[in-house]
Design a protein around this nucleic acid. Structure first.
Lengths: 210, 210
DNA sequence: GCCATTTTTGACCGATTGGACAAACGTTAG
DNA sequence: CTAACGTTTGTCCAATCGGTCAAAAATGGC
């Protein structure tokens, strides 16, 4: 058979590929590309290494498929940022959705972070294409709000960076956050604390009321 | 001789060790621990692999020495945060110093980020000890400012996280920032844009004036 | 039940890796 | 000059890695 042509894939092949991708996400997000071995992924997927290589041509192939497939999910919150609607409400919503993604999909966040940290050897084409296009489009929307005096005037792209940075921080640097905060509040409590803080930061900053 | 006992190290040994650590910082920060090889570090340091292993017992030893030594530098900006002095000025200063570190020492930032992303297998002891202690101390200072009504009331620890996240983002995700912004503004211009944006964000937030 | 196709596996391979080691080299004090 | 010590290197090793391959096992259509 030919696992390379998506047309002819049986239901079993699709299932196994999904199983492998799920296992690979777990392993890659924890150890990075070079730090992960095919054996680890195979074991996590409950199959032998040659068996895994029957469904994917190579380790590179798995990683590429994974990162390609997850990009849409990852960019979805920004896509929802809507031109119509109240600007502050839209941005608050974006921040919250992004924070929810960091809470619900930390592995996906770390998968991208691992690659980008090392110079994006695998994600670069998508950064320059889909990501840049989307950011350009949304930066224009935000700029429109600023020009209309509906939000403060700043650099829209750096605003987007700061939203990415602050939200993804809770996924990418989770162990550090945990080490600093101690065992006091659990996952859900921490999430609410972060949400409250970020809302206040992005809305009003640090200056005292008055 | 015995490179393990710091007491008996000659000047040449110290020099060579510095040379190796500099090379190792370059390599580790680009490829992570597992992605780096002793050969790469040795070549970057201009010596042979066995020669390098004459000065450091193992790859792990190099990484450990590096991360241990760099922690103080990395935490210095936060240490400077001073109880006396105007709170908003202090925080603005901290943000700027941290952003300067991201600009001037991106390799150090990536070295830590690489480790923490993968569960901090090597940095964890320091996170729980020195880092937590320092954050606890400074969080108390910030909390004092809040209680005195001199800055807005929020969670001081999440405030520190957000400063780390937004500033280090420019070091850790440099390639992504570059891909999104395009080749327009160079390093120094980008830095000034980021500084201006972050100052405004942390001071006033996004609400329009009025 | 039988055959063709798909799936799974054990055995294997070449390349790379971290590290050991002894021999060679350089330097310097006496 | 030379013995002692610090430094450097070529060679080697065992382990691990990504990936191949042929044969075995399971599956499904007839």
């Amino acid at each position: 058979m030919d696992t390379a042509s998506p047309k002819t894939r049986t239901r079993i092949q699709k299932q196994k590929r999904e199983l492998i991708l799920e296992a690979a996400l777990e392993v890659f997000s924890q150890h990075g590309f070079r730090g992960s071995t095919i054996d680890q992924i195979a074991e996590a997927a409950g199959m032998s290494k040659p068996n895994l290589l029957y469904y994917f041509r190579s380790k590179e192939d798995i990683h590429h498929t994974l990162i390609q497939r997850l990009l849409d999910t990852w960019l979805a919150p920004l896509r929802e940022l809507d031109d119509v609607g109240d600007p502050l409400t839209e941005l608050r919503g974006y921040i919250r959705r992004k924070l929810e993604m960091a809470r619900d999909f930390p592995r996906e966040s770390r998968l991208f972070a691992n690659d980008i940290l090392q110079g994006a050897p695998r994600a670069m084409p998508m950064l320059e294409d889909e990501l840049k296009t989307l950011v350009d489009e949304k930066a224009e929307v935000i700029l429109g709000w600023m020009k209309a005096g509906r939000i403060a005037r700043t650099d829209p792209r750096h605003l987007i960076f700061s939203i990415w940075a602050t939200t993804q921080h809770y996924a990418d640097f989770d162990v550090q956050v945990r080490a600093v905060l101690g065992p006091g509040r659990d996952g859900e409590g921490r999430f609410e604390d972060a949400a409250r803080f970020l809302e206040q930061l992005f809305m009003d900053g640090l200056k005292p009321k008055g």
